[in-house]
Design a protein around this nucleic acid. Structure first.
Lengths: 143, 143
DNA sequence: CTTCTTATTGAGAATGATTCTCATTAAGCG
DNA sequence: CGCTTAATGAGAATCATTCTCAATAAGAAG
């Protein structure tokens, strides 16, 4: 995890971005997260590392990380969530709308077949992760 | 098309909903549409049929139709779009973020294989239509 | 280490989509 | 034809996200 944050730091620096304490805190939070986080959640956690971080900076840092391919943005209802993902080939993300855990399906023949269909249709997907929102096994059972 | 609207009208009526002129106008607009529409677009078109329709009623009618399974809601950026869809088994929707045309892939072995994976993971998808947002063949070429 | 340039920041205002409120209307039953 | 109440339209309210702008600090250069 720590290592991952450093890699991103290095890559961003080489791309000409300045490495600020606020950005580092946000990156650290996202890398540590075990499920997808809303901007507000990221803000709360980042402030434990760097108390001066503002919400706008969280959004801006998400934009940068997304543009550089380090994370995916998801929508559940009206809210935007964020999770780290560097997988480049087409694959599926099963996202639980209750606990926001993400099950990442391996690329396999179902994603290969889908990819072939996309090619046949001449369709270019915006994302490599195809999101399927629903309920994971745990959250379906009566609590 | 006309027939489709009547079927829905009948079904809603039997479910205890009142059939108002505003609702009829909104249903008619959605059934006629050849691509997904934003609430504002639906409002504009519905007002040509029933000039008194309000935006809130468009949203409320969308909720009803969605609850009854007559349409899917999609998000492109921050905006919500809507398209008619009654297909019940798992399948893919390729949605062009530029022209908003929807290419509906037939259920086949790729969706079957995905369904098997969902079952294996114990994951329950919220929708039957898995949305893939991107650019259709036409919109990719320089205009 | 200090200075300079300017990308980045934080706070709050602004925006845009969606939802809510509430007095008024009309669907559909008898 | 009336009655009951679901549904409506208009505008206010809400919530997520984006923008504005003066102040700050990253990083290059000296």
């Amino acid at each position: 995890m720590r290592k991952r944050t450093r890699d991103i730091q290095k890559a961003l620096s080489e791309s000409g971005y300045r490495i600020t304490q606020s950005r580092l805190a946000v990156i650290e939070v996202i890398m540590r997260a075990r499920h997808s986080l809303s901007p507000e959640e990221i803000l709360a956690r980042a402030r434990k590392i760097e108390p001066s971080v503002g919400l706008a900076t969280v959004y801006r840092t998400l934009d940068v990380l997304h543009a550089e391919g380090y994370l995916e943005r998801v929508r559940i209802g009206n809210k935007g969530y964020t999770l780290a993902c560097e997988e480049k080939s087409l694959h599926f993300h099963l996202i639980c709308e209750r606990c926001r855990t993400v099950i990442e399906l391996q690329s396999n023949h179902s994603s290969d077949a889908l990819l072939a269909q996309l090619r046949a249709a001449g369709f270019k997907s915006r994302k490599n992760a195809v999101e399927i929102v629903g309920l994971c096994a745990k959250c379906q059972s009566p609590e």
